[in-house]
Amino acid sequence: MKPAPFDYVAPGTLPEALRFLADEEREVKVLAGGQSLVPMLNMRLARPELLVDITRIPELRTLDVEGDGALRIGAGVRQAAVAVDPAVSAGWPLLTEAIGHIGHPQIRNRGTVCGSLVHHDPAAELPTAALALDARFDLSGPAGTRTVDADDFFLSTFLTALEADEIVTSVRFAAQPHRTGWSFEELARRRGDFAAIGVAVLLTRAEAGGVDRARVVFCAAGSRPLRLPEAEDALLAAEGPERLDDAFAAAGAAARARLDPPSDVHADAEWRREAAEILLVRACNRAWERTR
């Protein structure tokens, strides 16, 4: 349970970090909070030859709301800092709620938001929240910068669109429409465990009372965060407050019918489908209450 030997470097600027990552002679890995990478080093599931610690690069350590109202979280920003940020809980409360489900405070004190997104565990909360919030990723590499939408970023279990010589420098979340309610619901055996199944819901209340816009994204239901258009359509069909319960039930039923989750040691597929239905209805009710 000790890491194999590696070289370590903590550059102070992004260009320097990119230069180290461009080394084609050896296996180089970015180190952020280390809360996923160090367990893998300890178990020798990962044996990089060089670790580039990006948490000492000042320009990556910023969290700000930009001119267009979008939230930008730099790659050096810890999950715990985002969870207590008042601008985040005012404008993107789904993120605040999602982070609250991640492990334990002791993990969130070190783990970064971008690190969780890049690690892309299919049961992780942040990739699911990022897809629900239409996040955009800012990537830097030897060829320059590019921006990737969340839907194109998450490929498969532990796999993203990031190239080995690129760094995610920040993730951006556009301002949410007015009257948008949120909920992140999950079930895990013990507090702090990865979700056995979880769902992020965003509902925007129409002037007339129905649902204007709906987002339903599941975690731990497949090899990446899974958006469920069938459930969203069921929610959009709610014409007024009196028909809401029916719409929520229809969304839940759609989730149960459409999801094809895995069976593993945490739960079997049938249990996950049943739990998905119950969680989605619960999340819809909670999100709706918060649309006021």
Partner: peptide
């Protein structure tokens, strides 16, 4: 293995000394 780093509880087994 929890210790306080700059006042915050963290896992010392998941933290590199150099960091």
């Amino acid at each position: 293995c929890t210790v306080l780093v700059d006042g915050e509880p963290v896992r010392s087994c998941l933290t590199l000394a150099v960091a």
